[in-house]
Design a protein around this nucleic acid. Structure first.
Lengths: 332, 332
DNA sequence: TCCTTTTATGTAACCGGTTACATTTGACGG
DNA sequence: CCGTCAAATGTAACCGGTTACATAAAAGGA
């Protein structure tokens, strides 16, 4: 293996000089610098990064915990994280946790054991809970955020966004609005439900919990939930789905029942995934700046890692936009 | 920092004994073992992984180069990679390369510099090309594979799959079949095109290149390409798209033109993404075992890393399945 | 009982960089 | 020409594990 000592020998200088030439060239005389660079080239020398990491106690890696990477929205967030991290010289260690807390804690351990400098969690769970007393490793919680997060957060005002969607449906004359929810226990689901209720209350309507169906953010769950809503004696005239995947499942089910969207039933989603504008009919939904969630999370995390401590208690709210397409129309 | 020496002191043994207790407990006497474990617990000791990696020259990390993580199919492949890697104690360093060769080479450097033990490339490009003479770092090429890959590969028989789709369309009576291709220079696109031509030739039809439109695997490109095909004097009666995303874009465009799928035009895709069975109409497509591509790639890579060299020239062909849904029907 | 073998533990070198501190070299002023 | 100081370079300790080798203790055999 060509290591720094080989290069030093080849260049006829000490290892310290080689190290300095590569890290702080300005404090090395030009003549020596050239000699060393030639030797580096000649030996095909590449510094052993594990040695650098070990010595400097900095890995330039970030752990990212994502609940389901196959989810279009998360895939975009990860894209943003990766781009921002790479731009600043960091790599990302990705873990598709599937919501399993054991797995999340295991990966969080990579930070405790120095294999990564910080962690981005995209789910409402603190993988460092059990770490007693010790200083918390650098962490940022984004997308689905803990209520009392012990770290900076990046989120959407889900409540306001859900309210905006609901108000749009109300303005179209809908009064019986079904809701296809995300997984229970999720702050995200809770907030969207609150926003939904806010809008109903503001319009003087009583909430009807029998119109709320659980789902799990996948198309099949939306399909199933829509089936339940349609089989009622008094089906809703509009359905608000907590994400676009479920909305697409719901639209399919509605068509299978021989009904039309939006003439018979309006459907709204959340996220504005790439397919939202290409499904039939194009979906009314909430657009989120997915990549920006990732970029912002990286920026905050590096603020903590680099001890720009003023950032330690930052909570960013990202903007949303109600995108009205053709899946919502006047109540029948 | 609590390191192994602190623990040794606390337990009243040598550092070697602590190391052995944690790595090879069976060669340590039960009494000593207990003493050490108590000390480990008491000190809250976690071994510094960078030190372990440095010393053992093994990082238990794999680099994964993915062209576009936001692509549903790749997201599934990554899910499979992650699962298989995690099961065997490996982490993955993910890079969303966007097809940029500079970026790919930079990440490949993580292997050369010992920050990862191997690399999985999901695109037809060898990021180690410039490494002169040296032994090639462990690598596996999956999904879109180099023709003369210098490493094991995992791929689909794209040609046979495309042929199967085309034969299905021919059997329905279609004679003018449009094709929406993927990016040029992609072996994947070339092979699917070959399979398409194989089927036409077998049916005694002359290929008509004017019916081939370029795309880039995104819904908007499928939308655009379908627009071109529809604006012809003699539009095709069926369109074969090289992936489902483009097929969804194409179906949207067809409906915008006031035509029906499949009554007026049949559409077929490739990949069988989650939305394929939920779009309108559900899409006829080729199902690929996406997660298995990832799992298989990991298995092969670890075979190389662990010097089970017999695997060094393995080329796995994964199975496909033609899934016939409602987007294809008899020619008008 | 003494010697051999096995088992358990300790000592210290080692991995490949980084960097504090020591030393050398050269420039410059008096 | 000598002394002072800054710049350039060298020496070697250090990071925290792992492990070859040495040593000590215990078990077994004659």
């Amino acid at each position: 293996m060509t290591n720094i000592r080989k290069v030093a020998e080849l260049a006829g200088v000490s290892v310290a000089t080689v190290s300095r030439t590569l890290k702080t060239p300005d404090i090395v005389s030009p003549a020596t610098r050239d000699k060393v660079l030639v030797a580096v080239e000649q030996a095909g020398y590449r510094p052993n990064l594990t040695a650098v990491q070990f010595r400097s106690q900095r890995t330039r890696n970030l752990v990212v915990l994502v609940p389901i990477i196959a989810n279009t929205f998360f895939a975009r967030v990860i894209g943003g994280i990766q781009e921002a991290a790479q731009r600043r010289g960091y790599g990302i260690l990705l873990c598709n946790t599937l919501g399993d807390e054991r797995t999340e804690r295991a990966y969080a351990g990579l930070v405790s054991t120095r294999q990564a400098d910080g962690l981005i969690q995209l789910r409402a769970y603190d993988p460092f809970t059990t770490s007693r007393g010790k200083a918390r490793p650098p962490m940022v919680n984004a997308c689905e955020v803990l209520d009392e997060a012990p770290c900076p957060t990046v989120k959407l005002d889900n409540r306001a966004a859900a309210r905006a969607v609901t108000e749009h449906l109300l303005a179209l004359g809908h009064r019986r609005i079904g809701m296809i929810k995300g997984p229970r226990n999720s702050p995200l689901t809770r907030d969207r439900l609150l926003g939904f209720q806010d809008a109903l209350a503001a319009a003087g309507l009583m909430p009807d919990e029998s119109l709320w169906c659980p789902g799990d953010f996948t198309p099949p769950s939306g399909h199933r939930a829509a089936g339940e809503l349609l089989s009622r004696a008094d089906p809703p005239t509009a359905i608000f789905c907590e994400n676009d995947e479920m909305a697409m499942g719901a639209m399919r089910r509605i068509k299978e029942a021989g009904l039309r969207v939006p003439e018979d039933i309006s459907v709204a989603g959340f996220d504005d995934i790439a397919f939202a504008s290409f499904c039939d009919p194009p979906l009314t939904t909430i657009a989120q700046p997915a990549e920006d969630f990732g970029r912002e999370a990286v920026a905050l995390l590096l603020d903590i890692i680099d001890d720009r401590v003023d950032a330690a208690d930052e909570h960013r709210i990202m903007p949303f936009e109600l995108v009205i397409r053709e899946s919502t129309g006047p109540a029948a």
